[in-house]
Every structure is written in C-alpha cells, then in structure tokens.
Design a protein around this nucleic acid. Structure first.
Length: 607
RNA sequence: GCGGGAGUAGUUCAGUUGGUUAGAACGCUGGCCUGUCACGUCAGAGGUCGCGGGUUCAAGUCCCGUCUCUCGCGCCA
C-alpha cells in the first residue's frame, strides 16, 4: 500500500492513486451493503467539521454518500481530514455502517447508511469554486459558462447528459435493428445557395475557395440512397450561421435518417415507433399509438401556427366573413379576422389585458381587441361597432358563454395567425392549462411546397428544394405555386418542432421542375447541384427520410428550459464560447497561408 | 438589424430626492465544537459600483456613448 502523508507534513499535497481501485459509486450503497469494506472516490460536496467528528458528503456522477471521519475509529485518518475543503477530490476506504437511530436522512438516496473512514487519500485539492456546485443554483449563466466543467458537475446537468447518452443509444439500437447503416458524411463540403447562412472554411491548398460546414447532410444522404445503401442514419452535427435562441445553437445535432423504396407512411411509421421506443426506454413514458395527425391547413386554421401545442384546448376561429360589413374599419377591411375564446376569462384584469396587448405587439399586431361576455352585456371597447345580427353571429360562431373573454386580431393573415397563435400558447401557460407531465406528439402533414418570400420577391422552398410535390401537384406548381402541396411532414412535440422530413424527387424531371419553380435556372442548377442531377440519372430509387433535432428533443425530455442545458459546451447568444474564448483572432501567418486579408473594419489584434 | 431585462464584495442581491467611511446573506480565512446533513458558534478579511466620457461643490444614483449576458422579433429551406 502507498504511504500516506501525516497531518503535519505537507497536508495539502496530493496523494498518488497507487493501487487503490473504486469498488462502488456514491449512489449505489444501501443498507444491504452494511458491513462491507468499500472504496469510493469523488468530490467533496459539503464538509461539516465538528472538531471531533467530520462529515463529508462525497459526490460522484451518480450521487452522494455521507462519509464520516471519526477520531475514535481511525485517529490518524481523522487528524488529517481538517484540511478537506469543497471540491477536493478524495479516495475513501471505509466500512459501510447504518446511521445511528433517528439519524437517517430521508432526503438522500443513501441516507440510511454512511461510510466510516478507515483510510483515505487526497487525490487533488481544488481552489474555492466561483459558485457552489449544487442544483439550487445561484450563479449567473455567464459565470457558469466560463467554468462549464464545474457547472457540469451539478447533478441536474449531469443527469441531462446521462439521459442524452441513453437516448442516443436507444435510437441507435432501434435503427440498427431495422437494418439502418450508420454512415458518416463530410464536415467539409460545398456551400449551397438556399437556406441558412453557411459557416465557411478557407482552404490552404485551394486559395480563394471555401468549404462550407453542412447545414445538414441532406444531399449526401440522398446520394447514399442512389448508392444503394437503402437505409441510412447518422447522429450528426449540423451548422447554421444564424442568430441564436433559447432552443437554437449554431452547431446542433440531428438524428438524420433516409430510406429507399418507401412512401411517407413508412417513414412516419418508422420514425413514430423510434420516438415511442425512445420515450418508453428512457423516460418510462408511453406515447399514444398512433400519433395524432393534422394537416398544415387545419393547424393554421385552428392554432395559427404550424406547430400546434395540443396539450390544451383553446382554438382560433375565423370570423372574417361576419365582420366584413361592420362599422369597425380595421375589422371590415382586414385580410383576416380571427377570435380566440377563453372560457372563464372574464375575470381578467385591465393590467393582464394590457400585458397581453404588449405581448401580441411583438408579432407586429397594432393592438388586441377583446370582449368580456357578461350576463346582460358585452363589456368591450369595440362591442358598440357590431350590429345585433353581427353580435349573434359572433356569439354563435365563437360559442360564446357568460364568463368568457374573447380576443380578436385583424389584419394581414400571416400576422393574425402568428400573433393569435402565440397568444394562445401564452394563455395556455399563464392560465395553467398545460399539464407539464404530458408529452403530446403530433404529425403535421400536407405542407405547401413553396412559400413566397417578400424580401427576395420570389417563391422559396418551405421544406427544402429536394422535396417531392404530392401526386398531381407538379401541374399546380406551374399554375398556382402557393397551392402546391409537398410530400413533407413535421413531428411536433408540445408545441416544438422536433423533426421533419419528406419524400424526395428521385427523377430528374421532377427535380428540374422544382428548380424551375424556385427560379433556379438550368445553368445555376448545374453549377450548384450537378452532382445531384447527375446522380438522379443513374437509377436513383424512390426515397425519403426525416431528421430530428436531438438537442431540442433531449431538452423536452429533460424538462430543460434551454438547449444549452443539454449541450456540453454551448455558445452564448452571440455565438461565442466563454470558456475557450472562441472565436478569436489568428496569427497573420495563418491568414497569409490561406490567402486571406481582413478588411480593416474586421481586423482585430492577433496574438 | 430591432425591442425588453440584467451588470455593485468570490456569489446572489439591497442601496431612498445626487450628500458622512457603499450594506446584507451565502461563501472564504482563523478559533471553538463527537451525530451533522445548506451543522452550529465567535472573530476577521474582502469593492476598478461593466467600461469611457459628461453635468455637478459632490455621481453606484442624472445625461451621452459603448461592451457583455439573457429573453424575444427579424433571420433560421
């Protein structure tokens, strides 16, 4: 056995691990282990030094165990233990024993027992951490991101990564059992015109030219289908240089899947079972069979959004036709007028309504009209503008009852749907209509193939330009581009889009027609996508697939508020890493090798 | 690019109408303490009030600019 330093000689020098081996993790000791000689290793969570007895809660990835240094039991070991501080790394050899009568701690998994120390090693000391490592956090996120390796020691965060690992394994097991091949695709690839901004990587050997990091492996997985792989998957990083949100990071992970010889029913069925298996294996939650479905048009009509949160019941109602002739001009001339009836909402205060009005303004609304339905009157700033006929039509259409409040939004249809759709979600949260223990999956289908971009003044792909139109919709595409439907589907969970996919164009003529509709001429298509167009001419099988946002999925499963809580080393909202301080300036030699010169406004001091 | 919130001790925060030496809790250091479990107790140390200007006899506090973190809008096929 290794010699152990005595208390008076260099008490803070670390001991070598030597031949000590861990026998148990800190969560695994129970009353069944009483009497056992064990060796546990971990970090000091709390120290309670009574001068006599010293208690230490030792933490490892799995949990906490109380360790007791006793002057009666092992005087030498006890004498050295006064130097122990928070986050010191200890190896403990001791005996599991029951806590004295009445001293059990019901709040701890291992609260029945404690380990009385026979001998111990100080494996390392630690500076006082800048914040306390416990779930009851009191430090700001910026500080925690700088010391991410300390934040990750918190049990709650550690649990998220245990869940994430189990989830990835569950998905791999499932897909492997169905004959999917895990194939890696390039990280250094070609910049594509459509979609998000690319992260670019300069090439030293090809100066003046750039790789792009993949926004997704979309084209590669299609080419793997042409290559006859038949079933592909990958749990893979994707990169998009767009602004961040609580649920968006510039690099994120997809479960990427593609299959040959299938239609949308087979892809959705496979994906649905994968998600159901995942929830069953990792959370012990049974999701409905089958998942409910809704068309895009129905989602927009009833919920205003293409990702309805169906955990609660409020719905939007179109009343445009009823108010077309009313005296309230903003209603009468609006492209779309919708109402949102809130049962029992009549008790809402002026202040609450004002807050909701501010809320909808975020989405471009000018204001928020409302009517409180009382026994003998409609209390409302706008009720006077409606005729008796209009009132009774509204009451009937909206199924108004005494005690309700109904909110209206009028104007451009995109704005009305967006503002009322998010107002609905806001009300669901504020009024406690959401059961947080429920997971409500929903397929949204029959998406439009294209949407009009006012900014670019042209039609752009809603899903992506490789999505196949529904049967017969290739013709619709030419006559009425906005009406053409896609063989695309999204999976929505609790109001978040967690996955989406489509059946692809596997023939050259269909893909060419799609490019044409998008205003990509033959020459540009050739430049950007010749490899795909070539491949489609060599016997591409019918194929389709789906991709899930793993981070967002784990975030929902873990009940985390931010995607950062399920990514080991995330970026801040300005896409920087507070721990490594990336991105950073580089030496001018590096830039010279790449043939890159910075514009003066962008140049920063290099190291 | 735009809007909201935040920035004061190691941490989380308080700080009145601009007015004495900027406070509290936790943490930290030292003493005491043999059944604690966010131990207790006594004592102590600890401040570029994000940064830069300005107004003023006097600025944590008022004004202008700027940076960072965060939530959202736009953006994200």
């Amino acid at each position: 056995m290794d010699p152990i330093l005595s208390a008076d000689e260099a008490p803070r020098a670390a001991d070598p691990l030597g031949d000590w081996r861990r026998t148990h993790t800190c969560s695994k000791l129970t009353a069944a282990d009483i009497g056992a000689e064990v060796c546990i290793m971990g970090w000091v969570q709390f120290r309670r030094d009574h001068g006599g007895l010293i208690f230490v809660d030792l933490r490892d990835r799995e949990g906490l165990t109380q360790v007791v240094f006793s002057p009666d039991h092992a005087p030498a070991a006890h004498a050295r233990a006064h130097v122990v501080r928070s986050e010191y790394v200890l190896a403990i050899r001791g005996t599991v024993r029951p806590r004295p009568e009445g001293m059990a701690n019901p709040n701890m998994v291992t609260g029945e027992i404690e380990v009385v120390v026979n001998d111990w090693k100080l494996l390392n000391t630690a500076k006082t951490p800048p914040f306390t490592i416990e779930d009851r956090i009191d430090a700001g996120e910026a500080l925690r991101l700088k010391y991410r390796y300390l934040d990750l020691r918190r049990p709650k965060l550690a649990q998220n990564f245990i869940l994430r690992s189990k989830a990835a394994q569950s998905v791999r097991r499932y897909l492997d059992s169905l004959g999917f091949l895990e194939v890696e695709t390039p990280m250094l690839t070609k910049s594509t015109p459509e979609g998000a901004r690319d992260f670019l990587v300069p090439s030293r050997v090809n100066q003046g030219e750039f790789f792009a990091l993949p926004q997704s492996p979309q084209l590669f997985k299609q080419l793997l289908m042409v290559a006859g792989m038949e079933r592909y998957y990958q749990i893979v990083k994707c990169f998009r240089d767009e602004d961040l949100r609580a649920d968006r990071q510039p690099e994120f992970t997809q479960i990427d899947i593609e299959m040959s010889f299938v239609d949308e029913e087979q892809v959705m069925g496979m994906a649905e079972t994968m998600i159901r298996t995942l929830f069953s294996e990792c959370l012990n939650k049974e999701l409905p069979t089958p998942f409910p479905r809704m068309t895009y048009d129905d989602a927009m009509r009833d919920y205003g959004l293409d990702k309805p949160d169906v955990r609660f019941d409020l719905k939007l109602t179109d009343v445009s036709d009823i108010v077309r002739g009313c005296e309230l001009r903003v209603f009468a001339k609006a492209e779309l007028v919708k109402g949102l009836r809130v049962p029992g909402g009549e008790t809402m205060t002026r202040k609450e309504i004002d807050e909701l009005t501010e809320f909808v303004k975020i989405y471009g609304a000018q204001g928020l009209a409302w009517i409180k339905i009382r026994e003998n009157e409609w209390q409302s700033p706008i009720a006077k503008f409606f005729s008796d006929a209009e009132r009774s039509a509204l009451a009937e259409r909206l199924e108004l009852k005494v005690g309700d409040i109904v909110f209206f939004q009028a104007g451009a249809s995109d704005m009305v749907n967006n503002a009322l759709g998010y107002l609905r979600v806001q009300l669901g949260e504020r009024l406690g209509l959401i059961d947080e223990s429920v997971f409500a999956p929903l397929w949204v289908t029959d998406f439009p193939l294209l949407e009009y971009s006012p900014e670019d003044k042209r039609w752009v792909a809603k899903h992506h330009p490789f999505t196949s139109p529904k049967d017969g919709h290739l013709e619709v595409l030419k006559s009425d581009p906005g009406a053409a439907l896609a063989r695309a589907y999204d999976l929505v969970l609790n109001g978040s889009e967690i996955g989406g996919g489509s059946i692809r164009n596997h023939t050259l003529d269909k893909q060419s027609a799609m490019f044409e509709a998008l205003g990509i001429d033959a020459q540009e298509a050739e430049e950007k996508f010749s490899f795909l167009l070539n491949a489609l001419q060599y016997g591409a099988p019918p194929h389709g697939g789906i991709a899930f946002g793993l981070d967002r999925l784990i975030m929902l499963m873990a009940g985390a508020k931010s995607i950062r809580d399920v990514i080991a080393f995330p970026k801040t909202q300005k896409a920087t890493c507070l721990m490594t301080e990336a991105p950073s300036a580089v030496a001018s030699k590096q830039l010279r090798e790449l043939g890159i010169k910075l514009r003066e406004s962008a140049a920063k001091e290099s190291q």
